[in-house]
Computed example of a mutant assay.
Amino acid sequence: MTIRAVMFDFSGTLFRLEQNDSWLTNLTDLDGDPLDIEAQAELMRRMTAPTGQVVQLSEEYQHAWENRDLDPALHEKIYLEVLRKSGIPKVEQAKALYSRLVDPDEWTPYPDTETVLKDAAGKGLKVGVLSNIAFDIRPAFTVRGLDQYVDSFVLSFEEHVIKPDPAIFQTLLDRLGVPGEEALMVGDSEEADGGARALGCAFALVDPLPTSERPEGLLAALRAHGVL
């Protein structure tokens, strides 16, 4: 079946949250000592992991974790707790770091993001972005002029459903006007993004490496499926 639409995940697929050194310079642990490089890297991993529980949680916070991408208030609540349990005990420091996470301007596009979106749209393909997320990512595209290549954004906190539930994939397919058998889903999570297969979509997995280490991951994924 010919691919007529490409659906992209956001975090770890089209964009990645990569800290500026200034974010972490003033962060300290319980003893007031600066976080070492390993602790900084683990902190960023926990803030952006698409699936899986990153710390042990009480029942109250477990609910918030499982529903974090459906409700902005729960999202903030659980990530402040994750940061606390990850060695950031000062609330003001945790809130400052959290504000970076939910600021679309702080996210970095992969080197081939613009090329892939532009080329896909230029070939007449429908392009959609589908994300488990609790904040509006559209400004990250608009500020770089990338929104012109995207036909529809489907965000979990707006639709009240999260991947891998087939319903959220179907929502985007309906808006793009393409059946699942004629769509390709591209994402960094087999568990979440691979859920598109339930609707007959093809699926391409990309590695959520740092942007400097994955210059053509998106291009390779689309070329492997004969899309570009």
Rank of each mutant, 00 (worst) to 15 (best):
E190N: 06
E216A: 13
S189Q: 02
A192W: 02
D136T: 03
S152F: 03
I162M: 15
P139C: 04
P109F: 08
R16N: 12
T28G: 01
L172E: 15
G217H: 00
V161F: 05
F157M: 05
A204L: 05
A120M: 10
Q19A: 14
L24W: 03
L24Q: 09
S99P: 00
S86E: 07
N132D: 13
A183V: 12
P139F: 04
P215C: 08
H75Y: 14
G177A: 08
K118L: 06
A121L: 04
Y149K: 07
L218R: 03
G128W: 02
A202R: 15
G12I: 02
S212H: 12
V154H: 10
G217T: 07
L70Q: 11
D21Y: 00
F135D: 00
L172D: 09
D193L: 07
L218I: 11
I3L: 14
E191V: 11
F157E: 01
H160Y: 13
L101A: 03
A5E: 04
D174M: 02
R175G: 02
N132K: 01
T51L: 07
P109V: 10
F153L: 09
E182L: 05
V102T: 15
N20G: 04
S58P: 08
G180K: 00
M47V: 11
L146G: 06
L205C: 05
G52V: 06
S11G: 15
G12P: 02
I88K: 01
E60R: 12
D9R: 08
V102W: 02
L172Q: 15
A41G: 08
F135N: 00
Q53E: 14
L57P: 00
P34L: 04
L130V: 06
G226S: 08
S22Y: 05
Y61W: 12
F153E: 06
H225S: 06
A41T: 12
K90D: 11
D119H: 10
E114G: 05
A49V: 07
F169Y: 14
Q148V: 13
Y149Q: 10
L155K: 07
E76G: 06
P179E: 05
E106Y: 01
Q56V: 13
S11T: 14
D36M: 04
G124Q: 10
Q62E: 14
K95Q: 14
R16K: 15
P72E: 04
Y110T: 07
D147E: 13
A120N: 01
T108D: 10
A94F: 01
R100H: 15
D193R: 07
E159I: 13
E213S: 10
M47E: 05
R223M: 02
D188H: 03
G52P: 03
D31G: 12
P166F: 10
T25D: 12
L117H: 09
G180D: 08
E216H: 12
A202W: 02
A73K: 13
D207S: 10
Y61Q: 07
L209H: 07
S11C: 08
I37R: 12
R223W: 01
V154M: 11
D21S: 09
A121G: 04
F10K: 00
F8I: 07
M47D: 08
R45M: 09
S156N: 12
A140S: 14
F157T: 03
I137H: 00
D9M: 11
S189M: 00
L17M: 10
G217R: 00
G12D: 06
P89M: 14
E181M: 09
M44G: 07
I137N: 01
A96P: 01
E158K: 14
